[in-house]
Simulated scan of single mutants.
Amino acid sequence: MDATELKARAKRRKLITQAMILLVTAVVIIGAVQSARVNLTALGITSGFDFLERSTGWSYSFSLIDRDINDSYARTLTIGFMNTVFVGFTAIIIATICGFLIGTFRDARNPALKTAATIYTQIFRNIPLILQGIFWYAIVIHLPGPRQAMSLADGVFLSNRGLMLPVLNVSLTVALGMVLILIGAVFLLKKARIGLAQSVIAWVGLLVFLILGVWGLFVPTGEGVFSWPALKGLRFVGGVTVSPELLVMIIAIVLYGSAYIAEVVRGGLAEVPKGLIEAGEALGLNNRAIWSRIKMPMALRTIIPPLGNQWIFIMKATTIGVAIGFSDLFYIVSTSITQSGQTLELIAILMGGFLLVNFSIAQFVNWLNDSLKLKAH
């Protein structure tokens, strides 16, 4: 019997084994589902997803779109999913920026910066996330009221009602359109490979075009481009209000997540061969040039895989919202289970939502990792 036939037999055995495992798994799952249906029927509990069309009859703290207590379970769960994605990606972006900055400080030669970054990392990485969330929530709800709110340049206000910020006086659709235009412009300018002066001119022209276009087409007559928060009686009107629950979620997750990302960045920078750094110094490059042209490009290949794990962890960390009453998907599902009794269906929706988001993040990380690999010529 030659080597080719032996390999073919080994391959067939592996396929048969995998097929048997899949078959047994499918039988177990089907049996469990059928048993659960029988038990639920015996208890008088109906199964299925028909409840999604029923009205919830209860409200919650935060929503990116209009909501009402008469919304169906389907719309309420969709709002919870949107809230989770919004908080998760907001925290991922801010935590990544802060993490790279703190991780760079940990690798710096300046003792003060290195010590401060180390203390930050050790504190926020070693305190449980849920404890940090409760701590910051206790601080925010005990801030002064709107009339005694802390202000910054009479445009940003912080009180026990949340954080009040100026906002573009346009709809969410227009704002998202502007973001997409800016992202497209980044790719176009990157591919164009134009000089610094031409890039500055292009960016200034694009921003002026967007501001004038938004002002002329989408801003109501007689109003400015920005809507500014202003105190009227016992509350603020205008601008946008970041609720205490949303503010605390972002603060707690960013502080916790950035501490872990900082360690990932520090580890990646430490993996860069010292010979490359010494070569850069021999060429007369300053510390900034060595960091941007040698250390960070080389470190990114080590940083990206564990960084993706941290992004997925941050997305899952949004479930702490249930402890402070933030209406993320986990909170909405928990309340829906109590109100409707559809435990299995709602848990399946919860699992499916997180699988969808985290799988998308993992695919993006894989693409990013592949794009940073050295190409063989």
Rank of each mutant, 00 (worst) to 15 (best):
A3N: 14
K7Y: 03
K7H: 09
R12S: 10
M20I: 13
A26T: 04
V38N: 13
S59A: 11
S61F: 02
F62H: 05
S63H: 01
L64T: 05
R67N: 06
D68L: 02
T76E: 00
T78L: 09
T78W: 04
A91T: 15
I94Y: 02
C98V: 12
F100C: 12
L101R: 01
G103Q: 02
G103V: 10
F105D: 08
K114W: 03
T115W: 15
T118F: 14
Q122V: 13
F124D: 08
I127E: 07
I134W: 06
P144D: 10
P146G: 10
G155F: 02
L158A: 11
G162N: 01
M164H: 10
V170M: 05
L172F: 07
T173I: 07
V174P: 03
A175H: 07
I194Q: 11
L196R: 12
I201H: 04
L207W: 10
L210C: 11
F218E: 01
T221I: 00
V225T: 01
L234F: 11
R235I: 06
G239I: 02
T241K: 12
T241C: 07
T241H: 09
I251K: 03
L255K: 05
G257R: 07
A259Y: 01
G268L: 04
A270N: 14
A270S: 13
E271V: 00
V272W: 10
I277R: 07
A279P: 03
A282Q: 02
L285R: 00
I290W: 07
M298W: 05
M298L: 12
I304Y: 06
P305G: 06
N309I: 08
N309T: 13
W311M: 15
W311P: 05
K316I: 13
T319E: 12
G321V: 09
V322I: 13
I332C: 01
S336F: 04
S340I: 02
T343D: 05
A348Y: 02
L350F: 11
G352T: 12
G353I: 04
L356E: 14
V357Y: 07
S360N: 13
L368V: 13
D370C: 08
D370S: 15
